[in-house]
Design a protein around this nucleic acid. Structure first.
Lengths: 246, 246
DNA sequence: GCGCGTGCTTGATCCATGTCAACGGGGCAG
DNA sequence: CTGCCCCGTTGACATGGATCAAGCACGCGC
């Protein structure tokens, strides 16, 4: 069991901002809402806070009452089993939601850890349900977000169940690239916020295998790697590699 | 590629029954509803139909408009990629919902195939959203069901990412056993509706590996297998095996 | 009742990835 | 500036599961 830092796991400094002024509103929950509806969502999303690198936003087993939207930063979610095995279930970036897994049992079922200093918006779930009864667009969009999470998970199952090491890593890099692009960052150049071990855990590989695959991609000229700095040189090459199954 | 049966993929014989009289109402969507609310759900769930063994309930890429509740029978869902690889994403039994993945893009993103003659209830999603705005219990329960699906997927990711072959199969058998129990069937004795290959696809293993693991479990006295007929002899043994990681 | 096909089992071998080990570099603490 | 620790890289070797191949059992159609 991970130990709690004294005085609670999360830093509580509150930031004042609103969905209506948030540049992520086209990615995040507010998508498709009118100005007036957006204001009602603002009321609901009153708590914003910072989570420092390495801190938990929530832990598996703790009571669930809010979902969280990432305003800035980068998170991982993971599940641990007794014998110490860890499975990273996802990496989340700005505009994505955290905590949906907690709705079913009213307790979080995974850990969410900031991989860099981050800011999140807490959305009290009970109030979200009330509001989404009134705002159809919000209701529907929320359902889409949950469904998208399920589809994403199926993709990971595909990856874990059928792909070999290099395919997995290629898929991972292309996915990150695409998500960075959607946020207005370079699609070709980015910093990884996670370690090789965390990548490995997510992809069902050991860190050495991840490292070797990175090296091979570099030798082949698909990417340039230096530690956590990645430059994608040949998107098509990486894509081709993914169909390269025996 | 599975071929389409002439005249469309699904048999359309309609069965007349109601949620209010359904013995699955404690497992399925109606959970927690009052008699009066249940009647309103009945109105919504008007289409019931049979899907014969081997037939598709829906296919990846087709438009989404309903989710489906399984009234009786057994399904698999799978995702295919171009080069023919298949990933089975789940096996579903009576009382479980199918099609949640389609909400996000308004198209189904996987195939649902009956593994035995089955009966399903179609729930038009747009109408479910309307009704769940009016019935809070229904809204909340629906959210829980979606969330449970996410949690389940995380479990599969854990399995695929960190477990070895025998652990995966043990986890699979225990999970089936537990779900049969919840439906009032024997926890110790059941028929598998799926082939070794489908089990393998779900567990990220080849069919030979699945077969060998079954044989080993039998040698060890954990189970008795004869083709698709499984008898679990030592639940504790199977559970112990799951922590048996090197 | 017989023959065929599909699915299952089992054996032999191979290979991708895991494991173990050594080393190097960068960043942070003092 | 110096030293340490964490992270990443690389090599040598081990192994679990994949692959290839053969044969068997059951269910179904004729």
């Amino acid at each position: 069991m991970p130990q709690r830092s004294p005085g609670g796991p999360i830093s509580l400094s509150v930031i004042k901002t609103a969905c209506s002024g948030c540049n992520l509103r086209e990615l995040c929950l507010p998508l498709g809402l009118s100005a007036e509806e957006l204001e009602r969502l603002d009321d609901l999303v009153s708590v914003r806070r910072r989570v420092k690198r390495g801190e938990h936003l929530y832990r598996s087993g703790t009571p669930f009452d809010s979902i969280f939207a990432i305003r800035s930063g980068f998170f991982k979610t993971d599940v641990l089993i007794e014998d110490g095995r860890e499975q990273v279930t996802g990496f989340q970036m700005a505009g994505e939601l955290l905590g949906l897994d907690g709705i079913s049992s009213e307790h979080h079922t995974c850990n969410a850890v900031a991989l860099e200093d981050s800011e999140i918006c807490a959305i009290p779930f009970a109030r979200l349900e009330v509001l989404s009864r009134e705002i159809h667009t919000l209701q529907h969009h929320f359902h889409k977000v949950m469904s998208r999470e399920i589809v994403r998970d199926h993709g990971v199952m595909m990856l874990l169940g059928t792909m070999r090491a290099e395919e997995r890593l290629a898929a991972f890099l292309l996915n990150l690239s695409q998500r960075f692009t959607a946020r207005g960052f370079s699609h070709a150049e980015f910093y990884l916020r996670m370690t090789r071990e965390e990548i490995g855990s997510y992809l069902g590989l050991k860190l050495e295998t991840v490292s070797r695959a990175f090296s091979r991609f570099q030798e082949e000229g698909y990417i340039a790697v230096q530690q956590k700095h990645i430059r994608i040189l040949d998107v098509a090459g990486l894509k081709a590699l993914m169909n390269h199954h025996r």
